[in-house]
Nucleic acid binder design. Sequence first.
DNA 1: GTCTATATCATGATAGAC
DNA 2: GTCTATCATGATATAGAC
Lengths: 227, 227
Amino acid sequence: MAEIDTRLRILDAAESLFTQYGLDATTLRQITGAAEVNLAAVNYHFGSKEELIREVFRRRLTWLNQQRLRELDRLETEAGGRPLKPSRILEVFFGVALKMAADTNGGGRSFMRLLGRTYRQPPEFVRSFFAEEYTAVIARFKAALIRALPGVPGEEILWRFHFMMGAMSYALTGTDALHIVAEDALDDSDSDALYARLMSFMLGGLRAPLPDLSGGRVKRPRISKAA
Amino acid sequence: MAEIDTRLRILDAAESLFTQYGLDATTLRQITGAAEVNLAAVNYHFGSKEELIREVFRRRLTWLNQQRLRELDRLETEAGGRPLKPSRILEVFFGVALKMAADTNGGGRSFMRLLGRTYRQPPEFVRSFFAEEYTAVIARFKAALIRALPGVPGEEILWRFHFMMGAMSYALTGTDALHIVAEDALDDSDSDALYARLMSFMLGGLRAPLPDLSGGRVKRPRISKAA
DNA sequence: GTCTATATCATGATAGAC
DNA sequence: GTCTATCATGATATAGAC
């Protein structure tokens, strides 16, 4: 039954199970069981569970971020030296992710759920790996946004980028949270509509008036002390 | 050493450890060790680890949502029958959370981190409990927002609420993700500034032009097939 | 490369003395 | 209510035959 694609079978099964049950809760027995592969094969091919996990992320994340850079390159080349529109920049960064998430067959949807879940709180042994994968990309998109929005300080752009990541994360992979908010009132299966909704929300946030950061009193609701 | 506050010591230690290591990864031995309490005390006072977890959430979450409803009641009473401003509504819902998150001493900060982390993907045995805690609150705030934004359909409001939860989640408890985006360029310790930034971003998103959901082609980047 | 069998360890839970 | 001691379970990892 097993050939050299054992390695691939393990990666696919692991990706799917990690998405369903989480990194910790998924056992090597589950993985090898689903992959119809022997338990010992994981340690033979990957050395350890941790290295398997890193490899699950590596094979897709590297590709994802390469696409982002490639698309941004193309846009900037087309534009000559002129700044891009903010909407185009967001469309590249988040559109690539949404597109992967819309791929129900190839496992892209599953992977994006896993990524969204892990990106936020990577276990120690993936954190540095994530940082390597992302820093170049973030830097490029930050620079493009700064040029696109001359009125907005770089610091503010990074914050808004962070908030947008949160919004995207909930949009793409927050199905459980969505059901708490919306019971069954919302349908997250139409990825085109979701993309449109998310884009207009993000653009609105990205171009919002700058916050008043004057040291003075910030408007906040007064909360009574009652227990 | 031990009295009847054993129960409290366990809850506090559990909250803190769950925040640091996650629900699964935290063991009862860690908890009872930190609480300086006997291992068997957890099962005596709570019956099981799962029940302990629910209790950790219950004691703070109930209070949090009660505050939200109370503040909203107050605003609506003050306004007579007139619709509230969207900004005031957001200030209540998110302001209460931010305020709790800013409480470094009483453990509020730790709890909000835990909540943000768990809300998104609750284990089965907390999901229904979360739903109970949230449905009434969401319904009230949704209604208020619908009245405040007559041009925006209820469905769109729920989506934007969902996106806002994502943004807040990253703002309040996404420190790890923030460092991936920003290396060390951003400081998330100034909670007043963070609140102001988050509010203007959210308001911009909430009031953004409605997305074009016409069945036609939605603008999306073309991704090349290259592997 | 693949398999069986097993070593080693840590977990949640509990029985029963105090 | 609190403690010690222990059980049953399931985990990762690996040794060694094929």
